[in-house]
């Protein structure tokens, strides 16, 4: 089982809750996830240009999607926060731009590709490093990245971002992808 981190400096990872939601359809685990993420999603949508009423409604819908898609979550490729972010982002594109968002072909995901606990922990560590690095960025650069993710920059204004330790995370994800490709054969 996932080790719950309760120390004050360690971020909670929510992987155990995701497993309870996926395998036991556990509503109290869902409620805990909701209390943490729904206000963040609502804020994300408001900062992206949605009005508060719509943002409230959408945050609820995003959490419903989390429930129904729980078995698509792969803890060796993404943190729970990341996975929730991608669902909220897709909903935002849907809602504010009324556009389709083409997605890459799916890689297989199933019991035969169940990730190793060690892989999950390494990804969590790398994600924590990235968070620290993000907080340590000069204000101007961090604000630029926030603007990009909250929908305030056009694609032309997004410059190549350097100084963030994406390389190590990328190589972990690459390993997870290789494992999935292997499982496809």
């Amino acid at each position: 089982m996932n080790v719950k981190k309760t120390g004050s400096n360690e971020p909670k990872e929510w992987v155990a809750e995701m497993r309870l939601i996926r395998e036991a359809r556990d509503k109290s685990a869902f409620a805990a996830l909701f209390q943490h993420f729904a206000p963040r999603i609502k804020s994300f949508l408001i900062r992206s240009g949605s009005d508060p009423v719509m943002a409230e409604e959408c945050a609820q819908e995003v959490m419903v999607t989390v429930w129904h898609k729980a078995h698509q979550f792969d803890a060796s490729r993404a943190s729970v926060a990341t996975w929730v972010f991608t669902i909220a982002r897709n909903r935002r594109i849907d809602l504010l731009r009324k556009e389709r968002r083409p997605e890459p072909e799916e890689l297989p995901w199933g019991p035969e590709a169940e990730p190793e606990q060690a892989d999950i922990l390494v990804l969590q560590q790398e994600t924590a490093h990235l968070r620290t690095a993000l907080k340590a960025l000069p204000d101007a650069q961090r604000e630029l990245i926030e603007k990009a993710y909250f929908g305030d920059l056009s694609h032309r204004e997004i410059a190549e971002q350097t100084g963030l330790p994406l390389g190590t995370i990328k190589s972990r994800i690459r390993l997870a992808l290789d494992r999935l490709r292997h499982a496809m054969k």
């Binding site: 943190s79 990341t82 972010f85 982002r89 995370i169």
Partner: peptide
């Protein structure tokens, strides 16, 4: 993952 950190 960067987006997830910003959300968090």
């Amino acid at each position: 993952i960067l987006g997830g950190c910003l959300l968090e």
